[in-house]
């Protein structure tokens, strides 16, 4: 088995978006999520859509992976769209048939909300699609650094996060392996009465816990043997560095914000 079992949905690549400093990506997405709510007319929405789509194409992540992130919320998008369509009674009546009375305001609102959803999901999944979980953890540790002053255990928290992230795939592989071994000994995880299926979990969980504890012990020992004693004075293998490209991206984003506030309608 190899490291291909990656949690989240990271799609390896070497695009500009992949290479951006994870802090840049997190910051921009944070503000993007915020400003999406300021768009309120066609031009301002267009600016955001263009920005989001441009990021997506730059990342070279196949569209189907992006769409996958949308699957769980399709229902929500359609539902809110229909809700606006039926409930909002602003603007002019554009469609009138039997009980269906659609107003232009409702249609616009419905589309706008759907686009908002779409944009939010798109940019946030773009983060997880182009950034490894470890990079995200590093970035969070770095961004939370100021909290160290108030004795918040930033380093320990980040370490816990990265260790869990590191071991989730391992545990998944292990689960797979053990369930195959027990299936070969006649356990049926998929069919049969619920009671039997619950019982079938024991032969899976016991070995899993045994190996998880063993691993934890070995890891602790290995860390100690290699001189780990907490975050104090520890240097880093992966230094985060703001490059020219990051500055450039920030500038583009600022332009987007300015354009957005220039084009949106007030009052």
């Amino acid at each position: 088995m190899n490291n291909s079992l990656i949690i989240g949905q990271y799609v390896p690549g070497d695009s500009i978006v992949h290479r951006l400093d994870p802090r840049t990506k997190i910051t921009i997405i944070f503000f993007f999520v915020f400003i999406v709510f300021f768009a309120n007319n066609l031009p301002s929405y267009s600016i955001l859509v263009v920005f989001a789509l441009a990021s997506m194409f730059t990342s070279k992540v196949p569209i189907r992976f992006v769409l996958k992130g949308l699957t769980p919320v399709w229902f929500l998008i359609i539902f809110t769209f229909l809700l606006h369509l039926f409930v909002t009674k602003e603007g002019t009546l554009v469609f009138d048939f039997w009980i269906f009375k659609f107003y232009s305001g409702g249609i616009f609102q419905g589309i706008a909300i759907s686009i908002r959803f779409f944009l939010l999901i798109l940019v946030t999944s773009l983060l997880t699609l182009t950034t490894t979980p470890i990079e995200i953890t590093d970035a969070i540790e770095d961004m939370l650094n100021p909290l160290k002053k108030v004795k918040f255990p930033v380093h320990e928290l980040a370490l816990m996060m990265s260790i869990s992230l590191r071991f989730i795939p391992t545990l998944m592989q292990e689960t797979d392996k053990i369930s195959r071994a027990q299936a070969s000994r006649g356990v049926d995880f998929r069919t049969g009465p619920i009671k039997d299926r619950v019982k079938a979990v024991i032969p899976l969980l016991v070995p899993l816990f045994v190996s998880a504890f063993k691993r934890a012990e070995e890891l602790a020992m290995a860390m100690e043997a290699r001189g780990y004693q907490g975050g104090e004075g520890r240097s880093k293998l992966r230094e985060l560095k703001i490059e020219k490209m990051d500055i450039f991206v920030y500038l583009i984003f600022i332009v987007v914000i300015i354009l957005l506030f220039l084009t949106r309608t007030y009052g």
Binding site: K177, I178, A181, D188
Partner: peptide, 19 residues
């Protein structure tokens, strides 16, 4: 299940399946 009762498999590191 019948197939599995006829084909016994000893996996790599089978001791990991003890419980």
């Amino acid at each position: 299940k019948e197939l599995r009762s006829k084909v016994g498999v000893v996996f790599q590191y089978p001791e990991h399946q003890l419980f």
